[in-house]
Amino acid sequence: MRQVIIIGSGPAGYTAAIYAGRAGLAPLVVASSVEAGGELMKTTEIENFPGFPDGLQGPELMFKMQEQAEKFGAEVLLDDVVSVDLSGDVKKVTLGSGAVEEALTVIYATGSAYRKLGLADEERLSGRGVSWCATCDGFFFKQKEIAVVGGGDSAMEEATFLTRFATKVYVIHRGDTLRASKIMQDRAFANDKIEFLWNKTVTAITGDEKAAGVTLTDTVDGTESHLDLEGLFIAIGNDPRTHLVHGQLDLTEDGTIAVQGRSSKTNLPGVFAAGDVIDITYRQAITAAGSGTVAALDVEHYLAGLDQQLVAQALGEQPAEPVTVSA
């Protein structure tokens, strides 16, 4: 049995691990088998993380965070969580390997996942012209005509970034105004490779081996049209990754895990949440890191408030490391 299991390995998870590690709690970080490091593993240059005036690469920042967490005794496991049981005093976390890890507390920091359009051929053509990551895949669309779906900051950022490669970037947006911040809008409007298609939703993606086009439906008059494309980048937002805790943790109407005030406390004692899974507004590396700090401090406080005799007993019961008693 552990004192704390941290689920997730983005800035929230690793920062929680650094704090919990320094507090002597020897946290287990379940980092995911292929998404360890979280969303920043898919970014390039990070220019706004304090302390790095020359910027650094997203993956580099995450490797540094992992190294720092491990330095203070965190154990990082490259495995996935398949289910959790958070209701009792002892929390149970089942891993992809089949192993069940137990702990007195859990910090849930699973971040968010790219939202999908929900179309029939979206999955089939994913990686074959349909993408959720301009920085990952934009390189392959040199001299091609492509489109970005969405009207927020990330859609504007992706569209602007993709003009480095593509000859033409359509921005398909269901409304006639953008949610994106003014600076991002202005940058996109000023770019003559970008053309906006207003009041349109993508209702089908066509293509056999590769994406070849989209069907657009006008949101005002319902007319359909077709657009030939070689690439479609979907940037319609993120959803907090909460599917493992449905029915166990309370959610907000935004779909985030509900926490009390500025704390990380969920509706269940001993269960804390941090990072993008509780925040759809700010979603920055540094705000997630701050949120992870809060969670680690809340865990320390919670553990200190438990009956220490019972804690010692609980931690001693599980022969994580066999103890040899010599006569």
Binding site: V34, M41, T43, T44, C136
Partner: peptide, 14 residues
Amino acid sequence: WAEWCGPCRAVSPI
């Protein structure tokens, strides 16, 4: 793969 591809780094040791 490419240097700038985070998921590539994740899958490489596997």
